[in-house]
Design a protein around this nucleic acid. Structure first.
Lengths: 212, 212
DNA sequence: TACAAATTAGAATATTAATACTATAATAAT
DNA sequence: ATTATTATAGTATTAATATTCTAATTTGTA
């Protein structure tokens, strides 16, 4: 367990544990144990459990969302959009512990709350921009400023929340099934807002596309 | 604190506490203290915290949802639909502790999980039926069987999840603002599925309607 | 090699929570 | 009025948890 990546390894194992047991049910002792590490040592690296979660959010979740959402290449074709939402779904699944208990985790850690807040606004802005470009290239029907904002926020809430919702209903669903499901549902919201030609292409693509 | 409504009083105060402090942060000791009651006495009435939450879910939340959702009068006019969604939003707010931590609460109590499961299916059926009647009376555009099911499930997830989502963003929002907001967002999802004439009436109604 | 810094283990402490148990008090039933 | 039942308080026990502290060990480097 030597090396400068101990901190990273802790995050890794914590994510694993959080995802299976739920973050609020996992204690620092359990994390240390899963790492074959003394509790004292764990505390040497991270002040407490909130600290670990905060780091996971900043260094992993937020970073990966940025890489996906902020990078706007390959998002103006129908197939690109499909990959985009699929990627989002994969990401949510990977960090599902966070999204299933988001409210509690954020509200119980003031520091995380602040970070979360700032990001929420930034992401909202980028998403609205994204919708704007979809309108500009004729994938989506024109809409008012407020309409764009509202729609993008609804989509974000839906994408981040849908999986938790489904996991309660369908106990044993795997990541692929959940991602596909998430994808389908978001399309139900968006389809009426896409143009006819775009929807036609989506239809054809989805017929042949396999989700991995 | 005498009388046969002690059990009811416990639920009452628990809901209050849960809503302000979040259910998972509240201990039986705190509940007893808030009731000016000994812990032993509390345990005489309810086996543990999960028991209390389960009772709240069954006797209050589920019952009130049934009263609202299952009763299908006054739901075929545009104004009735507005009242319907507004009522749902009020209900979610009243029991927001449950919806903000739904995943954890349900997953941590196997008994509640079972109850929740059964209900989820029942509610889904009723909602799909509801959408069907909207289509039948010309408020909503025709759709396939699967489309109806998908849409009603999306709506349910949206209504139950939106408020938690918003409460994290807008700290100080009151129940009226949240209900109005919830209402607006669900309309963004549904508007394209309503017929033009229905949307026209909705537009006029919403102009003059005040939410209480 | 020797020294300083970083890392680790493990014990010690304090807090908290859940729940069981016992003993009264109040109420209802006969 | 006496007895049984229900309701209540208060204490004790147990377990878990977070966190701190100290001492040892490892690692890097001059």
């Amino acid at each position: 367990m030597a090396g400068p990546d101990t901190k990273e390894k802790i995050l890794e194992v914590s994510i694993e544990l959080f995802n299976t047991e739920m973050a609020t049910n996992v204690s620092t002792i359990q994390i240390a144990h899963a790492l074959d590490m003394s509790v004292g040592n764990l505390y040497y690296h991270y002040r407490n459990k909130e600290h670990i979660i905060r780091e996971i959010y900043r260094d992993r979740i937020a970073a990966e969302i940025d890489a996906l959402v902020m990078n706007k290449d390959d998002r103006l074709s129908e197939s690109g959009i499909i990959r985009y939402f699929n990627g989002l779904a994969q990401l949510i699944y990977k960090y599902r512990f966070f999204y299933t208990e988001m409210y509690a985790l954020v509200r119980n850690d003031p520091d995380l709350h602040v970070i979360f807040h700032k990001r929420a606004r930034a992401v909202a802005r980028v998403l609205a921009e994204q919708v704007g470009t979809w309108i500009a290239v004729g994938i989506m029907r024109p809409a008012s400023e407020g309409g764009i904002e509202a729609l993008s926020e609804i989509c974000w809430m839906h994408v981040t929340g849908w999986m938790s919702y489904r996991m309660l209903a369908e106990e044993g669903a795997g990541p692929q099934a959940l991602a596909r499901d998430s994808f389908r549902s978001i399309f139900h919201i968006l389809r009426p807002y896409f143009t006819d030609t775009a929807n036609e292409r989506f239809g054809k693509l989805l017929e042949f596309m396999e989700f991995e």
